[in-house]
C-alpha cells in the first residue's frame, strides 16, 4: 500500500511542477521586461557596420526592432511582393547590407555560422527561420560591387554600401566608372 501512496505523491509532484512551470516562466519574463528594455541583451551581437540614423540607430528604436523586426519584415514582404512597393527602410536586403558580419578572413559569414547577425539570436532562442532558404544571407549586391570597385577603382577606400542605399551606390560607381 505504501508503494501506491509513494507513486501517487510522485505523480502529484510531477503534475504540480508541470502546472507551475508556465507560471514561473511568465513571471520570469515580466521580470526581465521591467529590468531590461532590450531582450537578449546578454547576447553579444555584432554591431552593424553603420547606423540608419543617429537617434534610433536601426530603422526603428532598437528595443522595438528586437521585439518586432519580424512584423516590419512581414509587412514589407507583402507590399513588395504583391504591390511592387520597393522602399528600402524595412527591406530584408538592407537589413543584410547593414548587419552583415565578416570573419577573420574578411569574408561574410553565412547564416549557418552563429556569428551571422540573424543566427546569433535565433540560435539562442531556438527560433527557426526559413528566410534564407530563398533570400541571400550576405550582401551580394555589395560584395559584387566591391569586386567591381576593386577592379575599376582600387584606390576607393570605403565599403561600397556604407551609409548609402544600394541604388545610390551603384549610381555613384557608375558615374565614376564612366568618368575614368
Amino acid at each position: 500500500m505504501s508503494q501506491t501512496k509513494l507513486l501517487w505523491r510522485l505523480f502529484a509532484l510531477m503534475i504540480g511542477t508541470l502546472l507551475l512551470l508556465p507560471v514561473a516562466a511568465t513571471a520570469d519574463d515580466d521580470d526581465e521586461d521591467e529590468k531590461d528594455p532590450l531582450p537578449f541583451s546578454d547576447l553579444v551581437v555584432t554591431e552593424p557596420a553603420q547606423r540608419f540614423s543617429e537617434e534610433t540607430g536601426c530603422v526603428a528604436p532598437e528595443s522595438e526592432m528586437r521585439r518586432n523586426h519580424m512584423k516590419y519584415i512581414l509587412h514589407q514582404r507583402d507590399e513588395t511582393m504583391h504591390e511592387g512597393i520597393r522602399t528600402r527602410q524595412y527591406s530584408l536586403e538592407e537589413c543584410i547590407n547593414c548587419h552583415a558580419v565578416k570573419d577573420e578572413q574578411g569574408e561574410y559569414v553565412r547564416v549557418e555560422d552563429e556569428r551571422h547577425f540573424c543566427a546569433t539570436c535565433h540560435t539562442y532562442a531556438s527560433v527557426k527561420i526559413d528566410c534564407f532558404q530563398c533570400h541571400s544571407d550576405v550582401p551580394v549586391r555589395a560584395s559584387k560591387l566591391r569586386k567591381l570597385q576593386s577592379g575599376l577603382a582600387p584606390h576607393h577606400p570605403t565599403e561600397p554600401f556604407a551609409g548609402k542605399l544600394a541604388s545610390e551606390t551603384l549610381q555613384l560607381l557608375t558615374n565614376e566608372d564612366q568618368a575614368q
Binding site: 536586403e93 543584410i96 532558404q133 530563398c134 533570400h135 541571400s136 550582401p139 551580394v140 549586391r141
Partner: peptide, 16 residues
C-alpha cells in the same frame, strides 16, 4: 534541392 548564393533581387529556394 537546397540552393545557395541566390541573387537578392531574385529569391528562389527548395520546395517552391
Amino acid at each position: 534541392e537546397d540552393l545557395k548564393d541566390q541573387k537578392p533581387w531574385a529569391p528562389r529556394g527548395k520546395g517552391t
